[in-house]
Design a protein around this nucleic acid. Structure first.
Lengths: 332, 332
DNA sequence: GAAAAATATGTTAGCGCTGTCATTCGACCT
DNA sequence: AGGTCGAATGACAGCGCTAACATATTTTTC
């Protein structure tokens, strides 16, 4: 192991060229004679030179970071968004820098501050429900800002997602069209999860149009989970005589399905189940879950792709609607 | 928006102190008079100063990054490891820098190179199955290196995990103890997933000790999934008359369970099912899955905690065994 | 009450790289 | 021959910060 890490200067000396030439070879920028390039490559190899991006970032005042703030890693939804982001960034020199806010706006703000210290060239954040400070920081950062998932709210720059309220509304329409009238809701602790609340509001609005309202609703404490769904459904059934249960998401809905299985409840005939997200697991159960596909991977991929395509923040804000799709399934 | 971003110098000027004093206030280092601190804080606030970590990293030649390389974001396993890492890092100034290798050793090597360019103070990587170059880079980086998940192989520095071979072996012992003798295996494409292969080998070894061998085995193409398990189990059953099926992981095993449900196969009496990982979903199905709990969250948390506790690479390598636990369940 | 120790602040010199502006040199014109 | 152009390379300054050392000021110690 060399006593001290080799720098550009060392490489330049060994290759018999100036530092800037090495820099150009490393970054593949500017015209370099083939012969020179080879010599420099050789020297890099020989020394085991690793460029120092901190120095590069400082000198060019342009990092290759894209700050990413996601609310949770507790289920597969946001890892899928993240996968989409990585996919969209593949082949580019950009590197995501991830923070997880745990659905906490204050924490999001802290994370944003610390991400901004790395001079990211863009920020991707899930949702548009920020503190005032967060919103100001995003605006003033001057870099591209992509708000993911939901299209409601006042965009800072680019928004990629769809209307959760509309998705909730359409879920309600779907159930009504299928003839269900006594509808219950199983939610989770949503003070933080604004998108869940929007879907809920959309659902309620759809029911109201038909002169209906929710027959009952129950909420688990804490985050959603399969177990949570299995535990809450019996409580919902105890609270009211319903013919359909809408779950905040597929995790919970699958749990509900399991409860039906165990309790001998005939799904669909006796009780319809409806989820949200279109997770793999929901489609893998014996009766594919009726739910809404939310194209999470695509949302991440598009966000990343748009940043690469247009690295400077444009004057106009824009909304990219990735849509959603009711999955008919077999449970509603 | 100010024409140019404020720097330390601007803050120092406004507060009427030297730059280093501001630097100390920002980093909370060294003795600062309360009055000075307040003035500096005020100036920072007034200017909306955001420190430039690239400059800080360069000047101190110590970044606050921890490079993390995980093989996949396709199921919840590695997001859980990542959660553990974030948890272990909470309250520290360190920031994970994530790369996803897709179980590709070459890609891991590329990711490592690019992560090293950020002068991380540590590298966390899942597994010990690296290319020679990767191994050399890890060694020569001089920073702390934590290899996660599996304890087999030749450690670079610290290893946190357990023996997958042993876990496979114990799974086999468990099934044998329960009286199963005609055992089949449902795997996935494991050229890349070395840990899956180790478990498989352990399982085969346990059977061999009893003079048994696998009655049959099938493998899905591509990554494991619930759907994959549901599709492959019937093929396994067609290939041999078995009384127990071991799945490469819980995703696949849950799929197998769903197949049994749909095909009217009495789980356990007619056919035992055994998984690996101890995922939430496996424990949420009507018959909790018999499987192995792998403490993924803990693995990540401990890795991060150890790095913070001892940021310099010690002379000796070390292995932290996080153990595993057979979950009795109801399916085997 | 002088020395020693602790506290609070400043000065200086880079960290390793890249942007900008030259400079060199041959090819290609007219 | 003189001029123009593009390709290839270099000199130099500086990005924004912090380590290391230096200096002032106060407090403690015996």
């Amino acid at each position: 192991m060399p006593p001290t890490k080799p720098t550009l200067t060392d490489v330049a000396r060994l290759a018999g060229v100036s530092e800037i030439t090495v820099s150009r070879v490393v970054r593949g920028k500017g015209p370099i004679a083939e012969e020179t390039r080879r010599r420099v490559r050789g020297a890099i190899e020989a020394l085991g030179y690793v460029p120092n991006r901190a120095a590069g970032t400082l000198a060019s005042s342009a990092s290759l970071f894209i700050g990413v703030i996601l609310p949770s890693m507790h289920n597969i939804v946001f890892p899928e968004v993240l996968r989409g982001i990585y996919e969209g960034l593949a082949g580019s020199p950009y590197q995501p820098l991830l923070g997880v806010s745990e659905y906490d706006r204050e924490k999001e703000q802290e994370i944003l501050s610390s991400l901004l210290a790395w001079q990211p060239m863009a920020i991707i954040t899930a949702g548009s429900d920020h503190t005032d400070v967060t919103r100001r920081l995003l605006r003033e950062s001057g870099v591209r800002v992509v708000e993911l998932m939901d299209t409601e709210g006042d965009p800072v720059d680019l928004v990629v997602g769809f209307s959760h309220r509309q998705a909730g509304y359409d879920s309600g329409r779907h159930l009504i069209a299928k003839g269900y009238r006594r509808i219950g809701y199983v939610g989770h602790d949503w003070v933080a999860d604004r998108r869940a609340r929007l879907r809920y509001e959309g659902l309620v609005a759809a029911l109201a149009e038909e002169g209906l309202s929710l027959a009952a609703e129950v909420h688990v404490d804490g985050p959603s989970s399969v177990t949570g769904g299995a535990e809450m459904l019996p409580r919902l059934l105890a609270a009211a005589d319903i013919d359909a249960a809408v779950f905040v998401n597929d995790d919970m809905a699958v749990g509900g399905y399991f409860h039906c299985l165990a309790a001998g409840i005939a799904v669909k005939e006796e009780l319809a189940l409806f989820g949200f997200n279109g997770l793999d697991i929901g489609q893998a159960i014996p009766m594919p879950l009726s739910t809404v596909r939310s194209n999470r991977f695509e949302i991440g991929r598009i966000a990343a792709g748009r940043i690469i395509a247009e690295p400077r923040r444009p004057a106009e804000t824009e909304v990219v609607n990735t849509g959603y799709e009711i999955i008919e399934g077999a449970t509603a």
